[in-house]
Design a binder for these strands. Structure first.
Ligand code: MN
Ligand code: MN
Ligand code: MN
Ligand code: MN
Lengths: 234, 234
DNA sequence: TTTAAGATTTAGACTATACTAAATTTTGTG
DNA sequence: CACAAAATTTAGTATAGTCTAAATCTTAAA
């Protein structure tokens, strides 16, 4: 045997393929919702069938990137999370770079970043971060993980949680990556850093009406839940 | 059977993997030397063993990307060449972009481009080309294939072919991608567009002595063969 | 508390790309 | 022109990632 049997579980650079990175990223992102990360959710997210997920979960567990309890779900280990965060950093830096340096709009960057995140070198990552002045947020307001694997703290509520009583709020993040919806949102001026006023909130989970520079727009409550805002200070 | 048997030879986007692209690019580049492209040369270039090449050549022939005569070598078909040229275009645009927009030096860009060439979208390619003003040559003086798959014509001789009789020449291309040698060459000022004078050429394939802005430097004949130059007009 | 529906895993298979060892073809030398 | 050396292909195997069909586990409803 070429490799000793007690070495089979070692994580090497080689083992971290683009597919592995996407699984880790998916686990990380699904965990953000607070729920246990299950096979079915991963299958949907990653566009594969459940048995494919099960097979990969075993591989990831062998690499000590996740803790896996059959039938019960998974969670990232410390090293799994570090890799996930590094890939997320790549993704968000690339998104911002494409917008800032190459004139992409915020609805065009996701698919490009989804691929390139796996292939830029550490050197290119550094040059991009440097060019952008070590930014903390991407074009959607998503926080960019730091090099050390920490995340800029975000304290924001969703637009859906605010009542008309609230005064002006500032949009800080748009948690949507559907190109058509993103185009719609930027058309009405609802982008990170814009200021809006909440005009009305219909009961029974009805629409939220907001005002953006004179214009009133009714937003579906589901969509409003994806818009994170902060109260204006002062 | 899901796919009819008379359809097995169809080239689809799916079939064109990064590995396939690298084979086509390698065949294209080896062909430039004028010699028949053989299994052994491809194996060396692509860092795989000869049986691996044989297997892939069959696949490429099935996809109508090459003509393959067992034991006798291969050549690209029209569609194989188009794909090779497109990948070369990506490679060289990326190299130039990294130098122009992100401060890379010419010895750092090859490895990065070798990977990214397979993963940029057509949209990103277009934005990069646009940013660069639709350039015709990369940082090494290598011609960048046009969108239509044609190549800017280059008429240049190697430095090794010139005798001291020749007057000043302009460096137009450096056919080397070894980072250490490239650093050496840029240190002595031997880069595309620089002007040099040929001072001496030793017999028996000996060194060529050149002068670059007052300084005389002896260049190994092998290395001189990789430097393409043009006589200055006027 | 039983049981059926839903979720998940197991079993078995396939494709792409790689390898080593062995067989075969080509080529260059005597 | 014969034949050994070199080049190439064939044969058989491996790994990563995917699939479908079948088995098994979990859970929620009767
Ligand atoms: Mn990805
Ligand atoms: Mn984003
Ligand atoms: Mn490549
Ligand atoms: Mn080049």
């Amino acid at each position: 045997m070429t490799v000793a049997e007690n070495e089979i579980n070692k994580t090497t650079k080689q083992n971290i393929t683009p597919v592995v990175e996407d699984y880790l990223k998916a686990i990380y992102s699904l965990r953000q919702t607070g729920e246990t990360v299950r096979t079915a959710a991963l299958a949907v997210r990653l566009n594969v069938k459940p048995p494919t997920v099960t097979a990969m979960l075993k591989t990831l567990a062998d690499l000590n990137l996740i803790r896996y309890e059959p039938y019960r779900g998974v969670e990232l280990t410390e090293s799994g999370e570090q890799i996930a965060l590094e890939v997320v950093r790549h993704h968000r830096l690339i998104e911002l770079y494409l917008v800032e340096a190459l004139g992409f709009s915020w609805d065009e960057v996701h698919d490009e970043a989804e691929v390139l995140e796996h292939f830029i070198s550490e050197k290119l990552e550094a040059r991009i971060a440097d060019y952008l002045g070590n930014p903390t947020h991407d074009p959607h307001g998503d926080p960019i993980p730091n090099l050390d694997g920490t995340l800029p703290e975000t304290t924001a509520n969703t637009l859906a949680d605010f009542s008309p009583a609230a005064r002006e709020v500032r949009v800080v993040r748009v948690r949507d990556q559907n190109p058509d919806r993103l185009r719609y949102l930027s058309e009405i001026g609802l982008v990170p850093q814009s200021t809006i006023k909440i005009v009305a909130a219909e009961p029974f989970d009805g629409p939220i009406t907001i005002q953006i520079s004179k214009k009133k727009i009714a937003l579906d409550r589901q969509l409003a839940r994806l818009i994170l805002v902060e109260e204006m200070k002062g």
